[in-house]
Amino acid sequence: MSKLSTSGLTKAFSGLVAVNAVSFAMEEGEILGIIGPNGAGKTTFIHLVSGILMPTSGSVTFKGQDITYAPAHKRSRLGIARTYQLIHPLENLKVIENVMIGAVFSRNRSLKEARRESMEICAELELDRLDRDTTQLSILEIKKMEIARALANEPEVLFLDEVMAGLNSDETKQMIAMIQRIARERRLAVGVVEHVMGVIRELTQRVIVLEAGELIAEGPYETVSKNPRVIEAYLGGAA
């Protein structure tokens, strides 16, 4: 059974169909790339699977359970975690507390247990000085903090929305290695939205390509990148 799947998932914003009848499935331990040109509906798609938006039609299934209309906080408890394209630090909480909320509210841990678990996760991600304010963090550290917060949910499925954006090439390499290690050690299904194709090639085993809300191709990056429809979507149709 797939960890997470959608069937005919559709979201229309008063006429504009942002996600159009997308069906896909994610397996345990798999790193899946979600690619497509700007405005293809990648982020909307993640919003629909994580419960931030509710779909117009179609369904979302997590380990055989229908969660199409489950609220975001319930999905987080079931085991679906995510980060955001735009960073979302909680600026009035310390770094450690930013991470802890995942453990406290998704896993019902006591503050003490949550703190201990969160410190372990941060150590794993090489994020230190955890009693800092989030305003003192570099962009790489904020990204790590947000991944740590998602991991504190103890997810089975993790979506990373443009987690490499704003990182330099060394940091990107470090992040790729980190995501691969996390996915392997925790047997996670990871969905990665990314614009840099080099990252997708290195990181993912399989990609799905969205264009104007529709799923137009699926398969390993090497195959998909030679698909004429995909090339056309990225470069624009020959006039």
């Binding site: 931030i52 909320i101 995942g102 406290v104």
Partner: peptide, 24 residues
């Protein structure tokens, strides 16, 4: 208590709070 985490998270960013399991 965890009320501090919940209320501050809601004040700072409801979307993050929801994604971390906070029943706003």
């Amino acid at each position: 208590s965890k009320m501090h985490l919940a209320l501050t998270a809601i004040r700072n960013d409801e979307t993050s709070a929801r994604s971390s399991g906070v029943d706003i």
